[in-house]
Design a protein around this nucleic acid. Structure first.
Length: 500
RNA sequence: GCCCCGUUCGUCUAGUGGCCUAGGACGCUGGCCUUUCACGCCGGUAGCACGGGUUCGAAUCCCGUACGGGGUACCA
């Protein structure tokens, strides 16, 4: 049995969830679920930046997060024993914690101005010496400091960092890292306006929410000694840490929405990825079950996930692998499941002004499943396959070129097949396949030679479902209409070629 | 500058001193299958950053260098 585990994901709701954050959210979730009933997954919204944390952004963030399917046990909407779960509503907790630290004299008021500090910093830089706060205000008599503060003098609050010690961060992924307190300096925990800084608010929240494992990006590792110091000052147990390797863009640069088209979860949803596949693909960036297994259900992920198997080194995002995994998942689905997922994508994510909007709706999702489930790596590719069902008929440039190439044989084939289809007693898939294969025999041509002109005439595309499926779905009348028109076009093209 | 972390095929990764003439996946590529596009199957391609140690033996341990990343804020 596993010890009770409490983890959290604490996004700032700036509208988008990039893949690095999503992976952190996923690992926290997998870790909690792996612990079974003993595991709790908390979602806390870090909305202290009022300007960017609009209600719309929060809602947008939650929408994307729900799509990813990482259900939370405590947080917005479900609440829980440590509510509120919005940092913006927890101001009193930070004030109380700060009061506690004042009482124990673990923090002190610092009246140094920004200008003074900038000058110190510049001087340190010039001497190629690390900048550490001098501690000038550290030993101001408390009574004096309080008096100045009450007189309205601007000041920040700093932690009295124990001198001459080394703070060790124990990390499940990275191992132990040592940080000299002397290099940390007495860092700021609250601004002049009394608002808490990230490190402080974070520790207060995590401590009060009884978080046992802090699983987050490696970019927070350097902050961790400060946080450890804060836990101690507040008299709380220090949680276990797990710093995850960074997720970089495919080019090795930082992930950015600007440079990378699918750098956010929302973009993946839009592109027609399946949530289960994204969980699978993201889990494999920095972790592996055994180095062999790639396609895994979420249940398998939960069963096998292990923080100690997480890599230390950062990874570049490979969207090709993600797409491949998505294709595996899509193909493995029950057709009904596939159709439901497709419908959800089409109706909830495909923008109304998308050029594929119409094609995406030309048939029922269950029909789309029958036609193209086997062929698509993402639901976003489906409309392209279904486009041939749209009216009016159009022919792509590539198809047009290849159609013309079929030449006299093409005309022969069409002349042969049109009456055959007209006469077909029942227009079933089986009958169509038999008729088309029979045509190849009758004409004494290779199947490919026979099918090519028919395909181009009927679909006008180089990308479409299977031939008989396509014809069957189009129906007898429309298929024949297109075959006849195609024949005329082919004859005309041949004539033109002769003239030229 | 200083501090912390990292470095296995193009990419994601397996590998914790002998099972490694380094395994899997994606990609690329040759072939098969074949009704376009895909899928599937068979094969190929390519890697332990570099230099020193330690050891009978090192991708694995130690030191250094290079490179990459993160931090160094009254940002998160």
């Amino acid at each position: 049995m596993t010890a009770p585990v409490r983890v959290r994901f604490a996004p700032s709701p700036t509208g988008t969830l990039h893949l690095g954050s999503a992976r952190s959210a996923l690992y926290n979730w997998l870790f909690a679920r792996h612990a079974g009933a003993e595991g709790t997954y908390v979602l806390r919204i870090e909305d202290t930046d009022a300007a960017r944390s609009t209600p719309e952004n929060v809602e947008q963030a939650l929408r994307v997060f729900r799509w990813l399917g990482l259900d939370w046990d405590e947080g917005p909407g479900v609440e829980g024993p440590h509510a509120p779960y919005f940092q913006s509503q927890r101001g009193d907790r930070y004030t109380a914690a700060l009061d506690q630290l004042f009482a124990s004299q673990d923090v002190y008021r610092c009246f140094c101005t920004k200008e003074e500090l900038d000058a110190e910093r510049a001087a340190a830089q010039a001497e190629k010496r690390p900048f550490v706060y001098s501690g000038r205000c550290r030993d101001l008599p408390v009574a004096d400091a309080v008096a100045r503060a009450e007189a309205g003098e601007a000041h920040v609050v700093r932690l009295r960092v124990p001198e001459g010690e080394v703070t060790v961060v124990h990390d499940v992924v990275v191992g132990d890292s040592e940080f000299e307190n002397a290099l940390l300096g007495d860092f700021v925990v609250a601004r002049a306006d009394g608002s808490p800084l990230y490190n402080f608010a974070n520790v207060v929240d995590d401590a009060e929410m009884r978080i046992t494992h802090v699983i987050r990006g490696n970019d927070h590792l350097s902050n961790t000694p400060r946080q450890v110091l804060l836990y101690r000052a507040l008299g709380h147990d220090v949680p276990a840490f797990a710093h995850l390797p960074m997720v970089l863009g495919p080019d090795g640069a930082k992930l950015s929405k600007r440079r990378h088209h699918t750098s956010t979860v929302e973009q993946l949803a839009l592109a027609g990825y399946a949530p289960e596949a994204v969980r699978n693909g993201l889990a494999l960036v920095g972790w592996s079950k055994d180095g062999e297994t790639t396609t895994m259900s979420t249940a398998e992920l939960v069963e096998h996930f292990d923080l100690t198997r997480v890599k230390k080194s950062s990874a570049q995002m490979d969207y090709g692998i993600l797409a491949s995994i998505n294709g595996d998942h899509l193909r493995a689905m029950e057709p009904v499941t596939w159709a439901d997922g497709y419908a959800a994508w089409r109706d909830e994510w495909l923008p109304a002004d998308d050029p594929h909007h119409e094609a995406a709706r030309v048939v029922e999702p269950s029909v789309a499943a029958r036609l193209v489930q086997e062929k698509c790596a993402t639901w976003g590719e489906v409309p392209e396959y279904l486009g041939f069902l749209l009216e009016p008929f159009t022919m792509s440039e590539e198809a047009s070129k290849r159609f013309a190439k079929t030449g006299d044989d093409g005309v022969r084939v069409l002349d042969h097949i049109i009456p055959v289809l007209e006469a077909l007693p029942s227009f079933t898939l089986e009958a169509l396949e038999a008729a088309l294969r029979g045509a190849a025999d009758d004409l004494e041509l290779k199947p490919g030679k026979v099918f090519a002109p028919i395909r181009f005439a009927v679909t006008g595309r180089t990308i479409a479902p299977g031939l008989w499926e396509s014809i069957h779905e189009l129906g007898r009348d429309r298929s024949l209409e297109r075959l006849r028109a195609g024949r005329e076009r082919l004859v005309a093209a041949a004539a033109e070629a002769v003239e030229a």
